[in-house]
Every structure is written in structure tokens, then in C-alpha cells.
Design a protein around this nucleic acid. Structure first.
Lengths: 111, 111
DNA sequence: TTCATAGTACGACCGCCATCGAACCTTCAG
DNA sequence: CTGAAGGTTCGATGGCGGTCGTACTATGAA
């Protein structure tokens, strides 16, 4: 039977109501993670993990994606071997009004 | 002559243009510093160093004030033996539009 | 002048987090 | 089945930052 030999890869996402301001700020306070967020914002949609420009190794990047995901900033899901990332823009806006736009805008302006 | 025996105590403040987003976010990402900022926002004006409610020692609090000042978030000046603190609200708004209000609002809402 | 109050400077400590490389898992193409 | 590409997991490491206590300085009051 054409069935996966193991469980398909899924990703856990927190409800934004479970995310603290502390988590969100810590997530956004790292320069590499801000690069990721800005590149996502610029892309406007989904973006594969391997398509980001950062100065760190793959394993470190995995760590940063995890932090962003657990902070509710990004959503991730698999398509084949590729993992796609997108911003949880609307949910973040509902939870922390103005925060994400302020950070992205400031980051873009600085670059 | 009624003159101070040593130089009067002054405090250095950065121009907001010299402050990076990194500094601002790091400053705001610490829970104790956010307490300070929120209590200042609530006070609406100046507030002596000793009038803040925090779980840390005086010397640690001094450290946090320094970080906030160097991040351009607060302004400090002496009056007698008291050091007064206030938010650089307008300048922060010009440099990082929306950031400080977003953080303060979220912090108030969480508390 | 002396004392009390307000805050600072300094040094030490400790824990956390960003980072890496190596080994591994999952999926798709041949 | 086999290989290769895309990510992950794991353990180790290193540095930075939050914390404290103690000693100190500055100011104003008695």
C-alpha cells in the first residue's frame, strides 16, 4: 500500500494566546531571526528554509526557526522534503498590536 | 565660594539616531526593564530611581537603568541626591515608530 | 562637621543561548 | 533499491549578560 513507512512530518504551532510578550520580544531581539522575519515579510508569502540568506549554519538556522515558531511569529509546514515558512501576520497583530510591523519597518529602514 | 567640591553629576545620553534597533529590542526584551518602562509610562512623567517596584537589588537596577539609557529609551538627570527618570517617548517614536507603544500596550495588557 | 540617604562602581559568579559539526532521518528521483 | 537533497537532532563549547554584595561617592540635613 502506498503509505508512508513512518508518520508524516508535522509541526506543532502554539495558539497566539499562549505566547508571552517575553517570548515574542526574545524571538525578535536576535539579529539572525530578524533577518529571517524581514526576508519573509519581503517575500510576502511562503519561503523554503533553504532560501534564506543568513550568516549561520543550517543547524543553527533550524534552531532559529524553532524559536520563531514557538513564539508564534512564523508558521511552518512540509511539502515534500521542503519546509515552507510564513509569517503569522494577522494573528500576531491581534495578539501584539503594532509590534511586528514596527520591528519589520525599523529593520528595513536600518538596512 | 558656594561651589561644588567636585564636578556635578551629569549623565550621558545618546542621540536616538545613534541607537540601533538591536539595542532597543534588547533593552525591551528584559522583564525587569519592561517593568521600569511600564511604571514610567504609567507615571506619565519623572520618577526617582528608588520609587520603582522590582524584584532585583539596587545595584542590578542601576545596571538596567544604564541599559535603558544607552538604548535611548529613558532620560536621566539628577536633582539633589535623587536621580529622575523619564521616557524619551517622542524621540523613540521618531526613531522606531510604533515600537514603544506596542511594547507598553502589550505589557499592560498582559499584566 | 557629621550623619543619613540615594545611587554607583567593581568584581565575581552563574546560567543561558547562539553556534557549530557530525550523524541521522525523510522524501523524491533514477 | 540507491543516491542525493533538505532539514533535524545531539552534544559540546564559548561568550555574554543578569545578578548580587560590598565598598564607595555625592548631596542635603541636623
Amino acid at each position: 500500500m502506498a503509505r508512508p513507512r513512518t508518520t508524516p512530518r508535522t509541526v506543532e504551532h502554539p495558539e497566539l494566546s499562549e505566547v508571552t510578550l517575553q517570548q515574542a520580544l526574545e524571538a525578535l531581539a536576535d539579529p539572525v531571526r530578524r533577518m529571517v522575519v524581514c526576508q519573509l515579510a519581503r517575500a510576502g508569502g511562503e519561503k523554503g528554509c533553504g532560501t534564506f540568506e543568513t550568516p549561520v549554519s543550517d543547524s543553527t538556522l533550524t534552531h532559529h526557526f524553532t524559536v520563531l515558531r514557538e513564539a508564534g511569529v512564523i508558521r511552518q509546514h512540509y511539502r515534500g522534503t521542503t519546509k515552507l515558512n510564513s509569517l503569522r501576520t494577522a494573528e500576531m497583530e491581534a495578539r501584539f498590536p503594532g509590534l511586528l510591523p514596527a520591528v519589520v519597518t525599523a529593520a528595513e529602514a536600518e538596512a
